[in-house]
Design a binder for these strands. Structure first.
Lengths: 108, 108
DNA sequence: TTACATTTGCTAAAAATAAGTCAAGTTGGC
DNA sequence: GCCAACTTGACTTATTTTTAGCAAATGTAA
């Protein structure tokens, strides 16, 4: 399951941790953990590294799950149309390519 | 061009407005407009409706451009992998479907 | 050079995020 | 029934990020 909260819950349960075990390790109380697992609160971006250390899961994987979830929620909340993610993908390509050609000397 | 700043600039120029003309209409000064057009500042979400009225462009279109841009920038900034948007798309589907089945009476 | 347009450095103000508190529930064993 | 684990509501507070105005700098065209 790629939903971030479900992912967290699954990983926590794999390790047989209660929410308060997990909360202690990551620095949150049980209300927060519960809300995060149930997707009514977001996990904090600044704790992603700590999470990847704690779970021993590659940070890129964690980050991708986190942002895919964030974007999905936002797109849903604001009723974006279905094309939005392919447009976003194009935009990333554009930005990357722009970044690359930047810094090159421009001749007029 | 689907990049939001470029889109704004193009629409403004179509109408032969200076940044300060546009700024006056939408409630921002030229600094803000400049930064928004150059993508070093984001257009404010709360002004999207006003923008759609001003440009006479369907709000859905404006919103989609806005969020596609936002997501792309964020994905780029945090170096998300390329798969992220298809995962996000799946997640939206999941959320929608979950929302639908919610509220239905559950029999055990 | 003058005038208008645009960009940028600095910064206060505003907004978004993050997370705690505390109380009042549920849920699922045993 | 009891207990521990979990959920949820209704806040409040703290922190971080972002916005956008001002003024100064730069660009640009006549």
């Amino acid at each position: 399951m790629t939903i971030f909260g479900k992912f967290l819950r699954a990983e926590r349960e794999k390790r047989n941790w209660t929410q308060s075990d997990f909360g202690e390790k990551i620095g949150l109380n049980t209300s927060a953990i519960s809300r995060i697992e149930n997707e009514s609160q977001r996990f904090s971006k600044s704790k992603l590294k700590a999470l990847s250390d704690l779970f021993q899961i590659d940070e890129q994987v964690i980050k991708d799950l986190y942002f895919a979830d964030k974007f999905a929620r936002e797109a849903f909340q604001y009723n974006c149309s279905e094309t939005i993610f392919s447009v976003a993908e194009q935009n990333v390509k554009y930005i990357k390519q722009k970044k690359e050609t930047q810094g090159q000397i421009e001749f007029k």
